[in-house]
Design a protein around this nucleic acid. Structure first.
Length: 465
RNA sequence: GGGGCCGUAGGGUAGCUUGGCAUCCUACCACCCUGGGGCGGUGGCGACCCGAGUUCAAAUCUCGGCGGCCCCA
């Protein structure tokens, strides 16, 4: 690595390419190529989404990429929020289309016309589906790999319920799912309710999971939205109740994206490169044979070890002949493999292997009779260590402020009392030159930093990506 | 939204002011030598973002396009 992590923007750009996550040279702005190693990481995350949402009674579907303009424009707030940043398909070949098509920026407008056909009676509810697809947004701001891109690898779940209470219950369930996801990825976060002017276009309210990157900027890594009947009225999604009357369904969504990879890179990495949490690492253990005179004997032993570990862990044997062990150490550290296993002549003699942790660089010699189990313990320990040290780091960047002074310079989240009015909210944003990224669940008595009114509402003020 | 910097082999660069043979490092290929923290040697392959203009001549100057990076709002 050429850049230290302190130099975050440069470090970030360097590590994602050198570690083999993406190739940014694709000649369209805001779009990059996923390389095998990076794609495997993304796919491991996707697989977890499939598992956890299936356990929570969601079913996977796939809707088309193109949405007709007529459907896209049905919900007023939604279209206002997105019309400036969608890609339009205007021609079929050389023939102009009668009805233009948009590349989905998210799939509400693709799905809900079909929801209207699928949902007839209360027996059809709740409906819970998800899909993992690419969405397109014509970002006008500076693009950043994983963090702000024009083609986004996206997860979205959509639910429909009979009552507002059931939709609220779904929001609570989504939060529980998010907690599991965050643990799996070892990501620290805070949950906030978005300010009214900042909620998802068309939503009744929005909840965001926000984390803090090393630059001090916050990154929204998951969003949960309560729509109530805002979309069902626009798309005429009605069901027949037991009493014979009709009502519109109540809807929620949950979205996550490749930003999670950006967060993992930024939050866990160090001066030597990536550190990938064991739970989702493409390779959990890399075996490096230290081959000297006994080349064949050691390689044979390394292959045997690989065979022994394969049923338990995701393991890779680096038997490249043209590189020295030292080179391989640096290489796999850059790629963030959580655990390295060295096997050389000395170990062979003693019937042991050497294990080296990526998070602490601790070296552990362990006998062959117990090493399989020890690896499991170490991987678990690395996972929890990554999370706890990231949580500590994040907590140190969240600071209370009684006055506006100092907030501008604070690298992280400033917590202030706020009366909740849009007027005072915008003043806070203007004076601090930052944004209210949301309202924490936590309440505390105080006086609004702008108008001085008594309040128990707090605001998180930060510079978001 | 505003400002600035930039585009030369796979990657990183020199050359650009003052137009004329494109520099070095790395990677890659071949052979030799090696191996518990980025081995070394010899030889080789490989580039001026795209388009238009000025000119005898453009990496270099002018204009446009595409793309990248940083900072500020």
């Amino acid at each position: 690595m050429e850049f230290p992590k302190q130099n975050f923007p440069e470090w970030y750009n360097e590590v994602i390419e050198k570690a083999g996550l993406v190739d940014k040279r694709y000649p369209v702005k805001g779009m990059h190529v996923w390389l095998p190693y990076g794609w495997k990481l993304m796919r491991n995350i996707d697989e977890y989404f499939r598992k956890i949402f299936t356990e929570h009674n969601h079913e996977e579907v796939y809707f088309p990429l193109l949405v007709p303009e007529t459907e896209f424009k049905k919900e007023g707030e939604h279209i206002k929020g997105f019309e400036d940043e969608v890609y339009w398909v205007t021609h079929g070949g050389t023939t102009p289309l009668d009805v233009k098509l948009v590349l989905r920026p998210t799939s509400e407008t693709a799905m809900y016309p079909l929801f209207s056909l699928w949902i007839r009676t209360h027996a059809d509810l709740p409906l819970k589906i998800f899909q993992i697809v690419n969405v397109f947004r014509y970002e006008t701001k500076q693009t950043r790999t994983f963090i702000r891109v024009r083609e986004v690898h996206f997860f979205e779940s959509h639910t429909a319920h009979a009552t507002a209470e059931e939709a609220e219950e779904q929001i609570r369930e989504n939060i529980e799912i998010w907690k599991k996801v965050a643990k799996k990825l070892a990501l620290p976060y805070v949950l906030v309710r978005k300010a009214d002017w900042d909620k998802f276009p068309g939503a009744h309210y929005s909840i965001g999971a926000e984390t803090i990157m090393p630059s001090g900027r916050t990154l929204q890594i998951a969003t949960i939205h309560q729509y109530l009947q805002n979309f069902s009225k626009a798309y005429d999604i009605q069901y027949l109740k037991e009493d014979g009357t009709h009502d519109y369904v109540h809807q929620t969504t949950f979205g996550m994206s490749e930003r999670l990879v950006g967060a993992i890179v930024g939050i866990h990495g160090d001066d030597r490169g990536l550190i990938i949490p064991p739970e989702i690492a493409p390779i959990q253990v890399v075996i490096i044979p230290i081959v000297m005179k006994d080349k064949e004997r050691i390689l044979e032993e390394a292959r045997k070890i690989k065979g022994e570990l394969e049923g338990h862990y995701r393991v890779h044997l680096d038997d490249r002949d043209n590189y020295t062990p030292g080179y391989k150490f640096y290489d796999w550290e850059l790629k963030g493999v959580p655990l390295r296993l060295e096997i050389g002549p000395r170990d062979l003699e003693k019937g042991q292997v050497v294990l080296v942790r990526r998070d602490t660089f601790e070296k552990i010699s362990v006998g062959r009779e117990e090493y399989i189990q020890k690896i499991g313990e170490l991987l678990g320990d690395i996972q929890s260590n990554l999370l706890s040290r990231a949580e500590k780091e994040m907590a140190s960047r969240i600071k209370n402020f009684d006055i506006l002074e100092g907030i501008k310079e604070h690298d992280g989240i400033a917590v202030v009392s706020w009366c909740g009015s849009e007027e005072c909210g915008h003043k806070i944003e203007e004076l601090t030159e930052k944004k209210i990224i949301g309202i924490p669940m936590e309440k505390r008595k105080g006086k609004c930093v702008i108008c001085g009114k008594e309040t128990d509402t707090l605001a998180y003020v930060a510079k978001p990506y």
